Amino acid sequence: MSEQSTDPKAVVLALVLREIHGTQQVLLGRKLTGFGAGNVVAPGGKVEPGESARQAAARELAEETSLSTPAELLMHRATVLFRFPARPASDMDCEVFTAHEFSGTPRPSSELDARWYDVEDLPLDQMWQDADHWLPKIVHGEQFTATVVMAEDNLGVQRVEFNDWQQP
């Protein structure tokens, strides 16, 4: 089994964080259509031709939640390489960004019904099985590259490897 994908899709996630009454929250949403419908996910999607990952994250956030943030304010927090040995066409290289500054109010879109979740009570049991490995690390400020190798059923996790980024 090779973990080197020949043609992974470039995708992004945008995690908006806020503090309300001393409690940190993250914006996630129930996926309404497409791949992963029914799961709670972070806003995100594919990088379009001609746009940077940061620009794609800002665009996807606006399209899926109605929140806006300038792309330059998004902080790159992680690179997560998803590998599907049983279905290599599903491989993804995901750049994950966080935002602490935004404008607007979350509104449901055709793809996502977004709402705020307490960082200390993430809905991991309603998310893809890999999320519990990397999402808590990101919302707690860690920076890393992770390789997530999915199980043969394309749902479970076979293995996760982390390489922390060196802090300046």
Rank of each mutant, 00 (worst) to 15 (best):
E3V: 11
T6E: 12
K9A: 15
V12I: 11
A14G: 06
A14P: 03
A14I: 00
L17H: 06
E19H: 04
I20S: 15
I20M: 15
G22Q: 03
Q24R: 15
L27T: 02
L28R: 07
G29K: 06
R30V: 13
T33M: 10
T33P: 09
G34I: 07
A37Y: 01
G38K: 05
G45L: 03
G45A: 02
G45W: 00
V47E: 08
V47Y: 01
P49S: 13
G50H: 01
E51C: 08
S52G: 00
A56E: 12
A56Y: 03
A57C: 06
A58T: 06
R59E: 04
A62K: 14
E64W: 02
L67I: 00
S68G: 11
P70W: 08
A71D: 07
L73N: 12
R77S: 10
A78L: 05
A78Y: 06
L81S: 13
F84A: 01
R87A: 12
P88T: 03
S90E: 09
D91Q: 02
M92K: 13
D93W: 10
C94H: 02
C94K: 09
C94Y: 06
T98Y: 01
H100M: 10
E101S: 08
E101R: 11
F102G: 06
G104Y: 00
T105G: 13
T105I: 12
R107M: 14
R107D: 10
P108H: 06
S110A: 15
A114Y: 02
V119M: 05
V119Y: 08
L122Q: 00
P123K: 02
L124T: 01
W128H: 14
W128K: 09
W128F: 13
D130N: 09
D130T: 09
H133V: 12
P136A: 07
H140M: 05
G141Q: 05
T145Q: 13
T147E: 08
V148S: 07
M150W: 11
E152L: 05
N154K: 00
G156T: 03
G156Q: 04
V157S: 04
E161C: 04
E161S: 07
E161R: 11
N163K: 15
P168G: 09
P168N: 08
